[in-house]
Design a protein around this nucleic acid. Structure first.
Length: 594
RNA sequence: GGGGCGGUAGUUCAAUCUGGUUAGAGCACUGGCCUGUCACGCCAGAAGUUGCGGGUUCGAGUCCCGUCCGCCCCGCCA
């Protein structure tokens, strides 16, 4: 900067400064050279301001301005001037004024940017990721990351005010079998042994409760080595929180407070309190999904009982095999064409493994048009009509399948068609709790697995069911759903080691195995663990929703591709064999250098 | 692991279905002109291993096979 010191950000240059000398610094957004007068749009992180170079007023600065190119880094001293009426630019916040330059310093040259540094230049994703620096200079990511910052601050404030302590937990930790695939880190000092990067600080935060830290939180980085999606990255950020001597209501209240404070302060979004609550059973029943977007005004109808004894084999056999028959009725669906139905069928077949997509359309004269109607008895037709409230113009979609698949398929149709047909209630934000999840789920081979994680406490009144009917045991788990996205979830944890041991046993861990894997937790509980519970909040997803984008990459400064690569720094990469040697690692096979 | 879409100049796209002369265009870039523009304008220019490898053919950006990369989805993951 030499002798220049920045006096104002570009966004601060306003009519109030007219006549004042200012110094601004930033990047050359654009140069408009008229041969005589030269205009340069100077961009800093906030805004753009126009700088004018006149050949007569300041020949030296003018000549230098002719050399400027996009993205050159400059500092400009000059006088703020009011623009004449006809040259005011309404598109710029600073468009009523401009800076007449008296001094120009070129602080750095720049290679031409690979794409325009503009709001809506459409650029291929891989190009954006390779040139992340340029992409980050564009307004969308500048906005996202600023929103993200406000959300960090809001959460820290809200929790600190509630007397939570921010405590860090290790990144080099122990591999535990629960959940996702671990990222492993080889130990040099313990050859052949590995740390795991945390999937979440779950156990550590429980130990902090046992250790007497009443209320803990952390904005924690988590790692899961699983395939990625638009809303899943290998590494992601959680707001992790735990509190002692509490029941479900206490934790949910904190959760609600944090959600509302964050949304308000980061994005000015007001969420209605208290959040409505829905049981898991209702969510699955009416929405076919454990994270319903209740703005969508379409609902599923369970018709399993209608087809238990049916002569329609396709449906009856699904029920007999323990599956369900469900229907998604869409009324006034006249604009859904036959070819659209075919498109939907091929979509659910290809993407969701549907066996087919049965449908019934009630035509203008009241007759049923359908590939399946000839298989239905009069009584079945009556029951379908009554339960789905079918009327002229209705279109009914059916799935008869295993419950999970039928629900997944109809839920997807509900969401797709709901938006496509505009069957939404118009609320921009829809927050709710889903509660009363089952503690256990069935594995493919008939065994028990946990539904969320193995430390969730059962509802007190369901504890007796652990012996005999574990599938009926409801957990203290709850999810916060925002606009159909699972934002966060939590539960009370088992603070009694006998209950925890019993659950581990039901999950199929032998006594010794449970001891080997979770001994430090179980023994911790035995040292006098208070009742405790908490939650973890998907921070990136929250940013994504509040920023109004549909991909995590757009709220993360340096994200990874679907194949887990960082295209900017080209990670992961091969390492020197000496490094591997030092870690006592010998690859089974090595990718060769390209 | 599976399904789908895509990959042509720095970039965004066209030419691919129906193989045929020198692969075009906008923006960006380079040079020149231009004293009130703000997507400045005008003139000129440079820019390509059509992701990569193989095959079919007289001839391949175009057809076939393989492979790599990006995105979306299923599985997986909470």
């Amino acid at each position: 900067m030499g002798s220049l010191r920045r006096s104002h950000a570009s966004g601060e240059i306003s009519a109030e400064l007219v006549g004042r000398e200012v110094v601004v610094a930033g990047w050359v957004q654009r140069r408009r050279d008229h041969g005589g007068v030269i205009f340069v749009d100077l961009r800093d992180r906030q805004e753009v301001v126009q700088v004018v170079f006149r050949p007569d007023a300041n020949p030296q600065a003018h000549e230098r301005a002719g050399e400027l190119r996009s993205e050159y880094v400059i500092a400009v001293r000059g006088e703020v001037q009011r623009r004449s009426e006809e040259t005011i630019n309404d598109k710029l916040l600073t468009g009523a004024v401009e800076i007449e330059a008296t001094e120009l310093r070129v602080l750095n040259h720049a290679t031409p940017p690979p794409f325009a540094i503009e709001e809506d230049a459409e650029v291929d994703e891989s190009t954006r990721l390779e040139h992340r620096i340029h992409d980050l200079r564009r307004p969308p990511l500048q906005r996202s990351l600023r929103l993200r910052h406000r959300l960090y601050q809001a959460v820290r404030h809200a929790l600190s005010d509630l007397d939570f302590l921010e405590i860090e937990t290790p990144m080099l930790t122990k591999s535990t079998p629960e959940g996702a695939r671990d990222f492993l880190v080889p130990s040099r000092l313990q050859p052949g042994s590995f740390y795991a990067l945390p999937q979440s600080p779950q156990i550590m935060k429980q130990l902090l409760m046992v250790s007497g830290f009443d209320r803990y939180f952390q904005i924690a980085r988590c790692f899961r080595d699983e395939d990625q999606r638009a809303d899943r990255q290998l590494e992601f950020t959680q707001i992790d929180l735990e509190m002692a001597f509490v029941g479900m209501e206490d934790v949910m209240e904190v959760l609600e407070t944090v959600t509302c404070d964050g949304a308000l302060q980061a994005a000015g979004v007001e969420l209605e309190r208290p959040f409505p609550r829905m049981t898991f059973a209702e969510a699955m029943g009416r929405y076919g999904c454990d994270r319903p977007d209740t703005r969508i005004q379409l609902w599923l109808e369970d018709l399993t009982d209608v087809f238990r004894e049916s002569g329609f084999r396709a449906f009856q056999s699904a029920v007999e095999a323990g599956g369900i028959v469900k229907c998604l009725p869409i009324h006034d669906a006249g604009d859904l064409s036959r070819s659209e139905i075919d498109r939907l069928e091929s979509l659910v077949r290809k993407e969701l493994g549907a066996k087919g997509l049965a449908w019934i359309r009630v035509t203008a004269d009241g007759t049923w048009q359908s590939p399946i109607v000839k298989f239905l008895s009069e009584s079945e037709k009556e029951q379908i009509a009554e339960r789905t409230q079918a009327r002229v113009g209705s279109l009914l979609f059916f799935q008869a399948d295993r419950a999970d698949r039928a629900n997944a398929i109809l839920s997807r149709l509900r969401i797709d068609l709901g938006w496509k047909l505009g069957r939404v209630d118009g609320r921009p934000w829809d927050a709710l709790f889903v509660v009363e999840f089952p503690l256990f789920d069935r594995t493919e081979d008939g065994g028990l697995t946990y539904m969320h994680q193995p430390f969730v406490a059962p509802l007190e009144e369901d504890i007796p069911l652990l012996d005999g009917e574990p599938e009926k045991v409801r957990g203290t788990h709850y999810d916060v759903i925002l606009n159909g996205v699972e934002l966060g979830s939590g539960s009370l944890r088992n603070h009694r080691s006998d209950v925890q041991r019993r659950i581990l046993e039901l999950l199929g861990y032998g006594r010794d195995e449970a001891q080997a894997r979770f001994g430090f937790l179980l023994e911790g509980l035995d040292t006098g663990a208070p009742p405790h519970g908490g939650f973890a909040f998907g921070f990136d997803r929250w940013c994504m929703l509040l920023a109004g984008v549909d991909n995590l990459r757009d709220v993360i400064a340096f994200p990874k591709t679907q194949r887990g690569q960082d295209l900017l720094m080209a990670a992961p990469s091969l390492v020197a064999s000496e490094q591997l040697e030092e870690l006592s690692i010998r690859p089974v096979r090595r990718r060769t250098e390209d």
